[in-house]
């Protein structure tokens, strides 16, 4: 019986274009320059700057609280063992509560850090010639982040189909698609809340009320955006967003104060006064859109490829605030 000949070897040919002096020399510095990422991904959260003074004050405060607590227990014990025991139990319960909150905040922080890290990885993969490996690991990491959320079943289903042949852009595209419903819901909420806040501010006659309204509506907006994405915001993330809210409040207060002082002397025309108030409402509403937008970016594992909040929302907010505050 004749033995079948072995199949021909598949030859992969290298093409040599030039050799010798025609080829430009290569050195490590050029390779370093090639590897430098052109644009650093924009940080989602401000970088931490732990300061020795903050630590010192925190430690001093904690020691002072411990001393006060111990003194209270001793005093209570001298009065009656029951009072002393009660103070001890209350203190322990408070401490336990704070530790629990701290632990939850730490967990939430880790989750948001992981999201920021994943987003940075997506951004790095956009650089020309960036390696496209590790997609499978990244998808597993995303799946692990989402595991305990039954609402993310569709996302998990999509992630289970990812294999090593996927590129980062394909994964990002699919994730964008999976986030579609949540993005739409969040954008709609931001639009609605921004318009409402703007109208409240434009219609409100009292500066103190403006201040409370902005704080209340913006905090609620941030919480509800996070709820849409099934994410618990960490303390640093919250603090970052609250800083933006504080700026919004500052804007409201300053404009209100200026408006009050100016209106008594210059703005005798009622129509002009209403117009200026509408402008103040529009300013606050646009800033609220920005806060909501930032909250959305914090909650998604994939960076935005196109603006998450349609730029037209700004125009719509302006139109809505104008129309609602127009006395005609």
């Amino acid at each position: 019986m004749n033995k079948a000949p072995p199949p021909p070897e598949q030859i992969l040919r290298t093409i040599i274009h030039a050799m010798g002096d025609q080829v430009p020399p290569i050195d490590a510095e050029q390779i370093h320059q090639d590897q430098t990422i052109e644009a650093e991904p924009e940080p989602l959260l401000p970088t931490k700057h732990p300061h020795w003074f903050t630590r010192l004050v925190t430690t001093a405060l904690l020691i002072w609280l411990m001393v006060i607590w111990s003194q209270a227990i001793v005093w209570g014990w001298a009065l009656s063992p029951l009072v002393g025991g009660l103070l001890l139990a209350c203190g322990l319960a408070l401490l336990g509560g704070f530790l629990l909150l701290g632990w939850q905040a730490r967990r939430a922080k880790h989750k948001l850090d992981a999201i920021a890290d994943i987003q940075a990885q997506f951004n790095q993969a956009k650089v020309p010639h960036a390696p496209q490996t590790g997609v499978l690991n990244l998808s597993r990491r995303i799946a692990a982040l989402m595991q305990k959320k039954p609402q993310q079943a569709q996302l998990l289903q999509m992630l289970s189909t990812v294999d090593e042949s996927w590129t980062y852009s394909e994964l990002a595209h699919e994730l964008e698609h999976s986030y579609g419903a949540q993005d739409r819901a969040a954008a709609k909420l931001i639009q609605r809340e921004a318009i409402r806040t703007g109208i409240f501010i434009a219609a409100s006659p009292y500066p103190l009320l403006d201040f409370l309204l902005v704080a209340w509506r913006n905090v609620a907006l941030v919480e509800r955006v996070a709820l849409i994405y099934q994410i618990k915001l960490s303390t640093p993330a919250r603090w970052h967003l609250y800083q933006m809210i504080l700026r919004n409040i500052a804007f409201t207060t300053v404009t209100e104060t200026v408006l009050d002082s100016v209106s008594q002397s210059w703005l005798s025309n009622v129509l002009l006064q209403v117009g200026v108030r509408a402008g103040q409402g529009v300013g606050v509403a646009l800033y609220s859109v920005r806060i909501g937008h930032q909250a959305m970016r914090l909650c998604r594992v994939v960076p935005e490829s196109k603006p998450l909040v349609d730029r037209n929302i700004g125009k719509m907010v302006i139109e809505a605030v104008r129309s609602k505050t127009n006395p005609a």
Binding site: I11, L12, R13, I16, H17, A18, M19, G20, V23
Partner: peptide, 23 residues
């Protein structure tokens, strides 16, 4: 000496009988 070359495009997977050769 310096060399400028275009390496071959690799297949996505290895043939089962490993009959692959880069020249």
């Amino acid at each position: 000496q310096g060399v400028q070359f275009t390496p071959p495009a690799l297949p996505q997977t290895m043939p089962h009988n490993l009959n692959l050769k880069i020249d």
